[in-house]
């Protein structure tokens, strides 16, 4: 039986966000809604990455003078996950901006936001 710790709950929430986001991207027909679904997916991944670094009862991963070096690796929260999140947020914003720009251009060209209409007829 999996223990429902804060970390487990956090992973579950992340998985839920990823699944909702992925389903939205695949099944919603409106391009703006697809974009929103992408941001949910991105948030889910970020939450998963932050949760990876969680250590129950842990300390901030800064080695201060006088701190015990032998305990530090076991107590300090893992820093790299949240570090990746910072980059992932930047990448997510860039991707969202490009997607939004493309959606605007395609809306001007086709007059609709329906993916089924905008994206049809590939082999012109």
């Amino acid at each position: 039986m999996i223990e429902l710790t804060l970390q487990t709950l956090s992973f579950l929430a992340a998985a839920l966000l990823v699944i909702i986001g992925m389903a939205g991207m695949l099944y919603l027909d409106n391009l703006i809604k697809k974009l929103i679904a992408f941001t949910l997916l991105s948030d889910g991944v970020n939450l998963a990455l932050v949760s990876l670094g969680y250590v129950q009862g842990g300390i901030v991963p800064i080695l201060e003078p006088g701190a015990s070096l032998s305990d530090f690796p076991n107590e300090a929260a893992l820093i790299f996950g949240p570090g990746i999140v910072l980059t992932n947020i930047v990448i997510g914003v860039s991707t969202t901006a490009i997607l939004a720009a493309l959606i605007v251009i395609l809306y001007k060209r086709y007059g609709t936001l329906k993916a089924s209409k905008v994206l049809k007829g590939e082999h012109e």
């Binding site: 997916l41 991707t95 997607l99 493309l102 251009i105 395609l106 994206l119």
Partner: peptide, 13 residues
């Protein structure tokens, strides 16, 4: 533009 949009959506995944 359509090709770019589809490619970017999948790049997210």
């Amino acid at each position: 533009q359509k090709a770019a949009l589809k490619y970017t959506f999948f790049s997210a995944l």
